[in-house]
Design a protein around this nucleic acid. Sequence first.
DNA 1: CGCTTCTATAACCCCAGTCTGATATTGTCG
DNA 2: CGACAATATCAGACTGGGGTTATAGAAGCG
Lengths: 129, 129
Amino acid sequence: MHAFDILGDPVRRRIIELLADGEMSAGEVGAIVQREFGISQPGVSQHLRVLRENGFATVRPQGTRRLYAVDPTPLQELDHWLERYRGFWSQRLDALGTEIARGRIRRQAESGEGRAGRRPRRPAGDAGD
Amino acid sequence: MHAFDILGDPVRRRIIELLADGEMSAGEVGAIVQREFGISQPGVSQHLRVLRENGFATVRPQGTRRLYAVDPTPLQELDHWLERYRGFWSQRLDALGTEIARGRIRRQAESGEGRAGRRPRRPAGDAGD
DNA sequence: CGCTTCTATAACCCCAGTCTGATATTGTCG
DNA sequence: CGACAATATCAGACTGGGGTTATAGAAGCG
C-alpha cells in the first residue's frame, strides 16, 4: 500500500491527527474513533495495524496497554513528493502579491522562469516515483 | 473521494507528474501511461476523468484534442494538512544533529519518558479535517 | 459527404481493502 | 491460580474502485 493510500482512509487520518498531539493508548484512540465513526474495536485495531506496518506509527507496550505515537517518516516522504508542486501555488501567490503591492515587495531571485502553467516540457523518461 | 485517495493510485500520480512539466493532450498522456502501466486507453481516460472531476486537472479543447494541465489547488490542501506534521521531522533532525555534534548519541530510555516526538496533549475535540 | 483520428462513456467483472462477530493472547490484580 | 481488562487476530461477508471490451461523439480531411 502506498503512503497516499494509507491516508486515503478517513479513520486513519483521524488517528494520525490524534497521535499528533502525543502518545495515546489503543484504547483511548479506539474510544474516540469508535464514537466518531461508529466502527467496532477490531476495526480500529486493524487500522492501527495498517499504520504500524506502514511506518506511520510506532508502538510501545506499557503493561497491558499499547501506546501509539506518530512516526513522521512516511509523512515526510509525501511532503517531499508534494515539493515538486509547491512552486505552482507559491508562484500564483507571488504573482497575486505582486499585483496587490503594485511593484513593491520585490521577490528577489525568482529563478526567472515563466508564470504558472506553461513550462518547458522535459524529455520524457524520468519516472521519479 | 478524498484528495489522498486520488493520489493513492500510481497511474494518477504518474499523470500528475507528467502534467507537472506542462500541458499535454490526453493522447500524449495515454501513450506514456499505457506503455508504462500496460492499461487500455479507456483506463487512462477514466483516470483523467477522476483527476478532472476532483480538481487536480483542467482541460482545454484544441481541435479534436484535449489539453490537460495540473490544477494545484487540491495539492495545496494536502500540503496544508501535512503542515501540522512538518515540525516532527525538523525536530528530529535538529535533535539528531545536536547529538552528533556533541559527540554523544545517547540512547534514550526505551520505556521511559521524554521521547522525541512528545508534545502536550490537547483536549480532544478538534477535528480539523 | 464518408472516413479516420482522438477522446469519452457505458456496461460489466473482479479483487483488494474494510467491516463485523468470535476468539486468542497477554498482562494485572486479589 | 482464576477473573478481568486491554488489545490483537481470524474468518467470512460486502463494497467500490479500477480494469476491460464495445461503442458513441466530435473534429479534421480528401
